[in-house]
Design a binder for these strands. Structure first.
Length: 421
RNA sequence: GGAGAGAUGUCCGAGUGGUUUAAGGAGCACGCCUGGAAAGCGUGUGGGUGUUAACGCGCCUCCUGGGUUCGAAUCCCAGUCUCUCCGCCA
C-alpha cells in the first residue's frame, strides 16, 4: 500500500506507475474519498468535543443533584448526528481502503519502462553445455530413469500435477537440503511456516485482493493455500514493532507452493515447467529502509550462488515495469538454461518491495530511541524453485550414455554418488 | 467438537456506568540534591489520526468489530487469541 499522503501530493506519479505496470486504479475516486473523509472527520470531531465536554458537565451536575434533563435532550441530538457521521465515515474509509489496496507499488526508476521485451539482460554466468547428441527434455529423461511420473500425477490430481519417484524424489530432497544448508550458512534463519494462511496474511504481502483467482481457497475455513513461502514468512511480523538492533531479519523457508495458474492454460504444458503444486526454498528479508537496495543485491547473490554450485548456466534480468509484480518496486529474475526444452526457465525472482508490504502489514521499527516509528522494508527471492532446478540439473548434466552427472556440491546429499543411471 | 477461565499503557497491577482527562507500583528519561554515586524529591513517559507554516488545539485507542446510553475499560451481541479440563485424532 502506498501512503495516502504520498498519493495526495503525487497523484501523477501514482497514475504513471499504474500505467507502467498496466494496472487499473481509481485515482480520482481515491482523491475524492480522501477529501471527503477528512472533511467528515473534522466536522465530526468538533461535535465529539462538544459532546465530551457536555457529558462531563452532566456528570458533575448529577452528582450535585441538579437537573440535567435539558442538557441530556440536547446531547441526544448531537449524539445521533455523530452516529450518522461516523457511519458515513466508516463507509468512506472502507471504500477508500478497498481502492487503496488495488494501487500497485511504484517501480523504481532503475526498472526499464515497457513490457516483457524491455527486460534487460544484466549478465550471464556459466557456459551452455555442448552436446554431441540432441539433449533430451526432462520429461523423457525423467520417464526413462523412473524419476518422474506425469501420467500418475494427472491421475490422482489432474493436469499440472506430477509425482517424483525413487531417485527423483530423493534428488529433490537432496537439493532442498543443500539449498537450506547453504542459506543457513549465509546467515538466514530456517523457518517452517504454515501452508494455509488467512485473508489478512494474503492481503499483507499483496496477493489479495488482486490475485484472488490465482489461489486455492479453502472456503469452509476461509483459508488459502500459500502460493509462496513469502506470504507466511513475511507476515510473521505483521503488526509488530521490531527492535532496530534485530534488523535485518533473514529467513529461509522450504514449503510447497500452490498456484491455480488461471489464465496460463496451454502455456508450458509439457513436463513440470508450469505446475499447480511445487516445492520452493524461499528467502525473505526484513530490513532497515536505508539498507534495502544493498540487501537486494546480496539476496540476488545468495540465490545465484545456488546455481553456481549446481554448475548450471543462467542469466540475470532486470524486469521491465510491465513485468513487475503488483507489490514490487524492482525485481531481478534468475533464469536457468534448460537445453532439453531449449529455453531459459525462471527459477527465482528477487524483489524489493520497499515499505509497500510493511505498510499493508503494519510492520514497523524505531530507528533510534525517541525517534518516530517507521515502516521496515521487505524483500524476498526464491532460492530456488525446485521443479525447474531439477529440470535444469537433468537437462544440463545429461550424458551420451543416458546418465546424469551429479555436481560436486550435491554429492554429499546423495550418499556420495557422482551420477544417476 | 463440548465446558470453563482470561486478554488493561514498556512491565506488574487496580478498576462492574459519570472528578479514570486509566489509581498505584516498577522500569526508563530528564532535572534537583551529591566531590561522585546510591537513596530521596520533582517532572515526563505509547500508538493512530484531524487541523496548523509551526507552537499548539482536538479526536480515536483498556484484544477486535458492532450495539445500548447524554456518557462505556465497566452493560449487551458477535468474533479472535491464550490457558485449563473433557471428547476425538496423526
Amino acid at each position: 500500500m502506498l501512503d495516502i499522503k504520498f498519493i495526495r501530493e503525487n497523484p501523477e506519479a501514482v497514475q504513471t506507475a499504474a500505467l507502467q505496470k498496466r494496472m487499473e486504479i481509481d485515482l480520482d475516486g481515491i482523491l475524492r474519498l480522501d477529501r471527503r473523509r477528512r472533511e467528515n472527520i473534522t466536522e465530526a470531531e468538533q461535535l465529539k468535543k462538544q459532546l465530551n465536554a457536555a457529558s462531563a458537565e452532566i456528570g458533575k451536575k448529577k452528582k450535585a443533584g441538579e437537573d440535567t434533563s435539558g442538557a441530556i435532550a440536547a446531547m441526544k441530538e448531537v449524539s445521533a448526528r455523530i452516529g450518522e457521521m461516523d457511519d458515513a465515515c466508516r463507509e468512506i474509509e472502507a471504500e477508500l481502503r478497498r481502492k487503496m489496496l488495488r494501487v500497485p507499488n511504484i517501480p523504481d526508476p532503475s526498472s526499464p519502462v515497457g513490457g516483457e521485451d524491455k527486460n534487460i539482460d544484466l549478465r550471464s554466468w556459466g557456459e551452455k553445455p555442448e552436446f554431441t547428441f540432441t539433449p533430451a527434455p526432462h520429461w523423457e529423461l525423467g520417464e526413462k530413469m523412473r524419476m518422474l511420473d506425469l501420467p500418475r500425477g494427472a491421475k490422482v490430481s489432474g493436469s499440472g500435477f506430477f509425482v517424483l519417484t525413487g531417485i527423483g524424489a530423493k534428488l529433490q530432497r537432496a537439493v532442498i537440503n543443500f539449498m537450506l544448508d547453504r542459506h543457513v550458512a549465509a546467515g538466514y534463519t530456517e523457518v517452517r511456516p504454515p501452508y494455509l494462511v488467512n485473508t489478512a496474511t494474503m492481503t499483507g504481502t499483496g496477493q489479495l485482493p488482486k490475485l484472488e483467482d490465482d489461489m486455492y481457497r479453502i472456503a469452509n475455513d476461509d483459508l488459502y493455500l500459500i502460493p509462496t513461502a513469502e506470504v507466511p514468512v513475511t507476515n510473521m511480523h505483521a503488526g509488530e514493532t521490531l527492535r532496530a538492533e534485530d534488523l535485518p531479519l533473514k529467513y529461509v523457508a522450504y514449503t510447497p507452493c500452490f498456484r491455480r495458474e488461471a489464465g496460463a492454460h496451454g502455456k508450458d504444458t509439457r513436463g513440470m515447467i508450469r505446475v499447480h503444486q511445487f516445492d520452493k526454498v524461499e528467502l525473505v528479508k526484513i530490513v532497515r529502509p536505508e539498507d534495502s537496495w544493498n540487501e537486494l543485491e546480496s539476496l540476488l547473490a545468495d540465490a545465484e550462488n545456488i546455481l553456481q554450485l549446481l554448475e548450471l548456466p543462467y542469466r540475470v534480468r532486470v524486469l521491465a515495469t510491465g513485468d513487475l509484480s503488483f507489490a514490487a518496486a524492482k525485481c531481478y529474475d534468475l533464469e536457468v538454461w534448460a537445453p532439453g526444452v531449449g529455453n531459459y526457465l525462471e527459477v527465482s525472482s528477487c524483489s524489493n518491495f520497499l515499505d509497500f508490504q510493511a505498510r499493508r502489514m503494519n510492520a514497523r521499527y524505531r530507528p533510534a530511541p525517541k525517534e518516530k516509528l517507521q515502516f521496515v522494508h521487505t524483500l524476498n527471492g526464491s532460492g530456488l524453485a525446485l521443479p525447474r532446478t531439477i529440470i535444469a540439473l537433468l537437462e544440463n548434466h545429461q550424458t551420451k550414455q543416458g546418465t546424469v552427472r551429479i555436481p560436486e556440491a550435491l554429492r554429499p546429499y546423495l550418499g556420495g554418488i557422482d551420477q544417476i543411471k
